[in-house]
Write a protein that binds this DNA or RNA. Structure first.
Lengths: 269, 269
DNA sequence: AGAAGGACCAGTGGTCCGTA
DNA sequence: AGAAGGACCAGTGGTCCGTA
């Protein structure tokens, strides 16, 4: 539904290019597999930290409607005067937006954030399909390989640290869209920044895990869109901690669990 | 059934010790997790290749019925005269034995080999149980962590290269014990060595995968004891190759698959 | 100050090859 | 020669911290 539109918009003004790039990405996945099969992997090379990594300018010539279409990728520095010598470009930072709200003024909204997760899923599906054709091991999660594939396919807006950073926010969006929407509206209204909203996403997730015997892995795995993401360490820890606390107060009160699951034994100290 | 007996026998003359060692192994799993959580992991240290790794002699004093109980672990060098200065000790090599046959003369039989896979499963179950208690990520396969745990628990007969080397042999044993037993008898009768028998185990597995749409991963995952083992690279490649060949001859003959699965498209060249 | 992401690092899957 | 397994290595999951 909406996702299709977003797909088109988020590509900026790049027309057909992505298709060709995906073909190249597929090819390079093959190269990597071949190199791994043989014993070629020579030449290590680490640490290059050359600050002037002169991102070569894209060759797309039409810049007519670029910028201010609401899904700015921040990829081209056409503002000001070419910037001072090809400066390092980043994605616009996120702001807390309501569902359906389009972020302006060099910001990205949360619908766009969640859309990136769908894109990753799309890339995983392609990597899986390739792996099956080649008889390679088939990833079930969004792995480094998938991020590499996404990058080669031209999705420069996707990177591992960002996606891992907001996984639990996306999880809430998947598991309880009502609650997620309500939280977004509340935090927008209060003028909170993205970091505060992100922190607030943990609590309802811990509550959901509680209703499923505190098994956050099971919660993730039971959801088709969420099961491809690793459970973030901090979320797992919060669920574990909450379980311990619940078990303690249960035993103190002599109460029995009322969530349909037996209260687990408190973990050893 | 038999496994219980084997468990006892394979421990040689070590009485209660294993229990204590498992407790220590559990503790050290915790240490590792803690170290990972913090940012301590200093001190790398690589390459120690000191040839005289002087395995410190175990402190178990009873050596009465050691050696020649049919499950020799080859762990203690009590033969000859203490060997020439603490020599490097290894497990006895495997020979092809019939089901139920006990290997003698410093050899191990194939029942013992398969028993080691059951032991690994046992260790995985313990690691999983610990992980759940601690709220850690829970492995679904026999990982490095499990091999490390096994070693700390005193199972010096288990190591990764060996277990990976024979996985597909164990797979055949799990998936078609009749065929596995027949193969063992045939190769024993012909006086073949372990390497030849090991090679021969691939073919029936490829045939099994063919009956399941060439999906060897699915075959492994459908079996509860096998699903905890990674599919060996070579087996996966053989299945893929056989699928390609089958698809080619199918299309040449204009024939339709008769295995209940649609013939897959031949992989791109 | 708040945030995006290049780059790092400890530990993984995989198996070679010096050893016995 | 045939075989067991210590030790290595490329690429992983995870996230810090120099950057903008």
């Amino acid at each position: 539904l909406l996702a299709g539109v977003l797909d088109a918009l988020s590509q900026g003004g790049l027309s057909e290019e992505p298709v060709q790039q995906e073909r190249e990405a597929a090819a390079s996945v093959g190269e990597a597999a071949a190199a791994a099969a043989n014993n070629d992997g020579r030449a290590k090379q680490r640490r290059s930290t050359t600050k002037s990594k002169a991102k070569k300018k894209r060759s797309s010539e039409e810049e007519g409607e670029e910028e201010e279409d609401g899904w700015g990728t921040g990829s081209e520095g056409s503002e000001g005067s070419e910037r001072s010598v090809v400066e390092r470009q980043r994605e616009h930072p996120f702001i807390v937006t309501e569902p359906g709200e389009v972020a302006r003024a060099k910001k990205n909204g949360l619908d766009y954030l969640f859309h990136l997760y769908e894109q990753c899923r799309h890339f995983l599906l392609q990597v899986q399909s390739l792996a099956k054709d080649r008889g390679d091991k088939c990833p079930t999660k969004v792995t480094n390989q998938v991020f590499r594939y996404a990058k080669k396919a031209g999705a420069s807006c996707i990177n591992k640290p960002k996606m891992r950073h907001y996984v639990h926010c996306y999880a809430l969006h998947c598991l309880d869209e009502e609650a997620s929407n309500a939280l977004r509206r509340a935090y927008k209204e209060r003028g909170e920044n993205v970091g505060a909203w992100r922190q607030a996403c943990y609590k309802p997730l811990v509550a959901i895990s509680a209703r499923h015997g505190w098994d956050i892995d099971a919660v993730f795995n039971a959801h088709p869109r969420l099961s491809i993401w690793y459970v973030p360490t901090k979320l797992r820890q919060l669920c574990h901690l909450a379980r311990s606390n619940a078990a303690t107060s249960n035993s103190v009160l002599g109460a029995t669990s009322s969530n349909g699951f037996p209260p687990p034994p408190p973990p050893p100290p």
